[in-house]
């Protein structure tokens, strides 16, 4: 039931974004993809989410040929750096979206959806904001709503692309702690992209340090910090 990423490659036009990335994470793990911009971490995350198509390689997750499935059926909650909330919908409608678009036989009743929205808002600590529009929320609140929206579909996997990149330091720290709490509560396998090593180490069980489309080192935060395997890793961590 683990996540096995094996030699995934991806080329954009002529630029190779991923040159064979591999890692294995146990079910329910919290993995950080850490690296400078252009290291391929976002591309790898988007491939996991089904937003990009890999050129080669494979991903197995919970006995599924993950890359053969379209984004729509992967049931992977994705949180974007710029929130990507639906501006024309209320907070409640945003969170309920993933439930409302289900085919009729799998769609919960209206009452169940409303109940789920209330629960999720409590979980992300925004109770009572159902009727607001995204434009009426702060950046941190928006990202909490985006997180609730991603969790609403009972995701098999939670994917976060620099989710706190647009927020200030204090809000980042709060959200980071909440994210970890929510992850532990839901027990969902989580992959988290960041360029901020402090953030990566603080929140993750496993860290993959990436450079030029490859994973330079993969291990627990303690191992990576104690024993950097390459010059790049030790230099990147010393900054």
């Amino acid at each position: 039931m683990s996540l096995v990423v094996d030699s995934v490659t991806k080329k954009f036009a002529r630029f190779p974004a991923l040159k064979g990335a591999s890692f294995v994470a146990p079910q329910g793990a919290f993995v950080s993809l850490l690296g400078p911009s252009g290291s391929g971490k976002t591309t790898l995350l988007r491939i996991l989410g089904g937003l990009e198509v890999a050129d080669s390689g494979s991903v197995r997750f919970a006995d599924l040929n993950w890359l053969d499935m379209p984004a729509r059926t992967r049931n992977a909650g994705f949180v974007f750096q710029q929130y990507a909330l639906f501006k024309h919908m209320t907070v409640a409608d945003n969170i309920a979206f993933g439930l409302k678009v289900r085919p009729r036989d799998r769609r919960p009743s209206r009452a169940d959806i409303a109940k789920r929205v209330t629960e999720l808002l409590a979980l992300v600590q925004l109770p009572g904001l159902e009727a607001r529009y995204p434009s009426q929320l702060s950046g941190g609140q928006r990202q909490r709503v985006a997180l609730a929206r991603a969790l609403a579909i009972d995701p098999r996997m939670l994917l976060l692309d620099e989710p706190f990149g647009a927020l200030d330091a204090k809000v980042r720290k709060e959200l980071r702690a909440d994210l970890r709490r929510i992850h532990d509560h839901a027990g969902v396998t989580t992959v988290f992209v960041t360029h901020d090593q402090e953030e990566a180490f603080a929140v993750a069980d496993l860290v993959a340090v990436m450079k030029d489309g490859r994973i330079e080192q993969y291990g627990t935060p303690q191992d990576v910090r104690r024993d950097p395997k390459t010059a790049f890793v030790s230099e990147f961590l010393s900054v």
């Binding site: 089904g50 937003l51 729509r72 909650g77 710029q82 990507a84 639906f86 678009v101 289900r102």
Partner: peptide, 15 residues
């Protein structure tokens, strides 16, 4: 972004 979000939430292209 929004369309990508919709897709990861299970929406079909038409939805």
């Amino acid at each position: 972004d929004m369309e990508e979000a919709a897709a990861t939430l299970g929406a079909t292209r038409l939805q």
